[in-house]
């Protein structure tokens, strides 16, 4: 027969087990290896900035299949490690930065900062091979792209 005392102990044991399980899941959090690229999309054959080289073919093909521009140039490429449950800021240009936070899930929070002001924030899980792209129009019918991938 189950006494109130044994019931209480049993319940306590289950709570402790649950707490340990939850903690283990929390501890499962990993560091994130992130690649962030700032890319410029245009129909011009060359970028006016000679240091901007065309992006690699796989990236160019992906972008061409989604967006209308013919050519894509790499403005900046940064690889960072975002420690679990931490935030890393990546400066992609004078006007553009992203803050990347590793969240439980695992998910990433990406905050776009333009001219030192927050513009938008996105939270999403990011599997390997998937691209999280934030983009917008630029001058003279060109466009900018921030492409975030997990390595």
């Amino acid at each position: 027969m189950t006494t109130p005392r044994s019931l209480h102990t049993g319940l306590l044991r289950w709570c402790l087990l649950l707490l340990f399980w939850l903690a283990a899941v929390e501890l499962r959090a990993e560091d994130l290896n992130i690649e962030a690229q700032l890319i410029w999309g245009t129909n011009a054959e060359k970028s006016p900035d000679a240091s901007h080289k065309p992006v690699d073919k796989p990236t160019a093909d992906k972008l061409k299949n989604v967006f209308k521009w013919k050519n894509y140039f790499l403005v900046k490429n940064v690889n960072v490690v975002v420690p679990s449950r931490s935030t890393k800021q990546i400066q992609l240009s004078k006007q553009c930065a992203v803050e990347i936070t590793e969240l439980p899930g695992p998910k990433v929070e990406v905050k776009l900062i333009g001219d030192h002001n927050p513009v938008m924030r996105g939270v999403k899980s990011l599997s390997k091979g998937e691209s999280f792209v934030i983009a917008g129009d630029d001058k003279n019918e060109t466009a900018w792209f921030v492409v975030i991938k997990q390595n």
Partner: peptide, 15 residues
């Protein structure tokens, strides 16, 4: 925002 299944890409277009 939209997702391109074929390119495994999630896009947020800011304007």
């Amino acid at each position: 925002s939209f997702r391109s299944q074929s390119e495994n890409m999630f896009v947020v277009w800011v304007y």
